[in-house]
Each structure stands twice: as structure tokens, then as C-alpha cells.
Amino acid sequence: MYATPVSNLIDELSKMPGIGPKSAQRLAFYLLKASQEDAQKLAEAIVHLKETVKFCPVCYNVTDEPECEFCADTHRDDTIICVVEEANDIVSMEKTGEYRGRYHVLGGAISPIDGIGPDDLRIKELLKRLEGDEVAEIIVATNPNIEGEATGMYLAKLIKPLGVTVTRLASGLPIGGDLEYADEVTLGSALKGRREI
């Protein structure tokens, strides 16, 4: 349908998450119309990203330093590690301003449908970090879907016998929302996870 360079670009773009064929087409034609300079900048940004950004050897966050900022920060609490699926989940946790411990990025969640088993995640690396007796608690902050929960269960099974406390983020009502507008499933989950006041 299109000249080969155009359809090549559309193919590459539509591999990205959240980009369907239609969005890919729109982006490709935007780039076609963009100035040579803008296109060059984008291409360079992508190449630069791949050349300079690496995984932090401790927590597997993305970083362009030898260690990521959260591992290098000497003021953070070493006794607690928050386990997340992807590096961008760290940003969400940091925005809360409530957490001062360390992180560990698994690189996904257990999902047979996608061919991802425990061995494909950075779980061995996490266990290695627990070898010294410093860590007292692991917070499992995987997504609240069934894959995230199965991953959490797997971690708990592995880590609890080591004498480390394993906790899971609570799920439930959004702050500032009215009970009346909460959907039944969320409300049910909040009810199940209720606590004494």
C-alpha cells in the first residue's frame, strides 16, 4: 500500500505498546512531514538511549550512572525492599513521597500466556540481595491483576522461610472518592482488606 520505507516505519512503530496500526500510520506520516532536523533528533535520542542507559546492577532500575539514584542514595532505608514489575513503577512509588526504602525491578510478572515463568524474572537477583541479614521486609508492589498476584504468591513462598516479612500493597478505595461511586468489585476488595481504627 505504501512505499517500502514508509511501511517499514509503520511496522516498527506498531510493535510498540499501545500503538495500533492506525496510530502507527498517523505517527509515520507526521514524521514524513516533520523537518529533517526534528526527525534526526528523534533518531539520535533513540540511539543515545540505547547506548547510554543501562540497568542498575543492584536493583535493575534504568540508569545512566554506574548505580541508579535510589541504590546510590546513602540516606535510604536498607532494611526494606519494594519489589515492582517495571522500572516506571518506581516513579509512581516515589511520587507518593511515603517510601524511603530500596527497590527491586523484576522485569515483568509470571504469565504462562506470555511464556514468562519465574526464571525469566530477576528473582534470583532479589534472593541474592537477601543473603546478608540486613533486609527485614519485602513489599510486593506488583500490579493487582492475577499475574501480579501469582508473582506475589511465588515470592512469598520463596522468601517467608528466610525469616523476612513479606507484605502486599492494599487494594481498595481511591482517596477523595465517595463510597457511592465506588464500583462493587473495588468496594468488595476494600471491605476484605479492612483494618481496625
Partner: peptide, 22 residues
């Protein structure tokens, strides 16, 4: 679906505890 795909990928009859997660 997750559980069935897991079952299909296991070698027959071997229980390694991974089913339990689901």
C-alpha cells in the same frame, strides 16, 4: 487460561508447585 497454558507446558505428571499460584 493461564492455568491451562501452564499445565500444557509442564512435562506430564510433574508437580513443581507452580499450579498452586493460580
Amino acid at each position: 487460561r493461564q492455568r491451562n497454558i501452564l499445565l500444557k507446558s509442564r512435562s506430564q505428571g510433574v508437580d513443581d508447585g507452580s499450579l498452586e499460584l493460580w
